[in-house]
Nucleic acid binder design. Structure first.
Lengths: 224, 224
DNA sequence: ACCTGAACACCGTTCAAGT
DNA sequence: ACCTGAACACCGTTCAAGT
């Protein structure tokens, strides 16, 4: 029997689905969606790639589980706010900030269908829509519209973060360059976009996102 | 000099960016986003993988170009409709139907930032927002909200199409199974979603999408 | 200038073999 | 039951060599 000198590299606890998902999140946050690799994950867990498959069916499930973990935390707070409108805003902001902190989450949410993290979000939004006294037939439409808007912003923010990261510039320089490009568009072909260049440069993503939520909420309550 | 008997396999014209993008679209429509491979593309063009790189910088540019081609066609029609509302609806439906016909487009749009196809769409929407007599400071918010909603639906529809294709069931069975799952949710944890199961089963994606557009339009014009 | 196709440096996933 | 790690069947991309 070979006597091992010193403890093994860093494997005190056995592998588990939870430890794997935690490590996956760390990897995603550190090196982005492209850096989540079974080999890199195995190295971080001091094991081989094959071991991971004992606890997880594949990469898709791993990504879903990681998204669920982060999103669940973001939406964990009880529905705060005096009004349903405020509760929806708080919920939406929670998702927005989670994507801001974990850009890979945006791409994941934008591309997942009725996986469980999304279902929970739909439920939370729906309850507030109901509290807005929206008639039953319109509740589905209203909740879906809010959710789809949030997911649209999620995907775009994730893509922007990816682009900014790829060009190794900060978000500020990235927006600035885009605004400059907008201002130089052909006035014949892009009359509207051109005039929005200034607003693109100075706007605040978070506030703009919230303004969109308010717009939809106004539409939901507009017909009484 | 070797005399070639018969014409070569199917290479009469030389390679060109346009032929490559066309072939890429065909491949995407036939075998989905996962099937677009430089090797498969090269085979279809009767050439080697390396040749493609002479006309295109890489896979990202190829996907962007394919999306641009399809989206441009979908949004080519002049702004029809008597009212700006109708024009926005026509525009949004054009995008919706294009994604329905080419599911890969949904994932591509949801994940692209200010690439040119999106810019054109933003411009077209913005002009109608302006025509709605929205005050200048709110125009950016209104156009962005509409675009983000469209992109959110795009991503979800693409994901649903992928799931339905993976399980080899049609869209009908897929929706039916989801609705059944919703109806069996825990009434304590999912009171809202549970009651929406029936609506999920019977709803029409296209009409639901349009209803969301109308909701946002109502919000845009709500404050006068 | 444009094309060829082998080669490089990766992937996700599987699976016999170990403990 | 759980883990190991080599092996399989792929990728996108590069690049010397051809025409």
């Amino acid at each position: 029997m070979a006597v091992s000198t010193g403890r093994p590299e860093r494997r005190q606890e056995p592998l588990s689905r939870e430890r794997i998902v935690t490590a996956a999140c760390e990897l995603l946050d550190t090196v982005g969606a492209g850096g989540l690799t079974f080999r890199a994950l195995a190295e971080r867990l001091a094991t081989g790639p094959g071991a991971i498959y004992w606890h997880v069916t594949g990469k898709a499930e791993l990504l879903t589980a990681a998204a669920e973990a982060v999103l669940a935390e973001a939406v964990a707070a009880e529905d705060g706010g005096a009004t349903p409108q405020e509760a929806v805003r708080a919920l939406a902001l929670g998702v927005f900030d989670a994507i801001d902190a974990h850009p890979w989450l945006g791409a994941q949410l934008a591309g997942s269908p009725g996986e469980s993290p999304m279902l929970r979000l739909f439920e939370r939004i729906g309850r507030q829509v109901r509290a807005l006294a929206v008639p039953e037939p319109a509740q589905f439409t209203a909740a879906s519209a809010l959710l789809n808007y949030i997911l649209g912003v999620a995907g775009q923010n994730a893509a922007n973060a990816r682009t900014a990261a790829a060009s190794a510039t900060g978000r500020g320089e990235f927006l600035d360059a885009a605004a400059t490009a907008w201002s130089r568009l052909d006035p014949q072909e892009y009359p509207f976009t051109r005039t929005m260049a200034g607003r693109l440069r100075t706007h605040d993503d978070r506030e703009e996102f919230l303004a969109g939520i308010d717009l939809i909420l106004a539409g939901i309550t507009a017909g009484r």
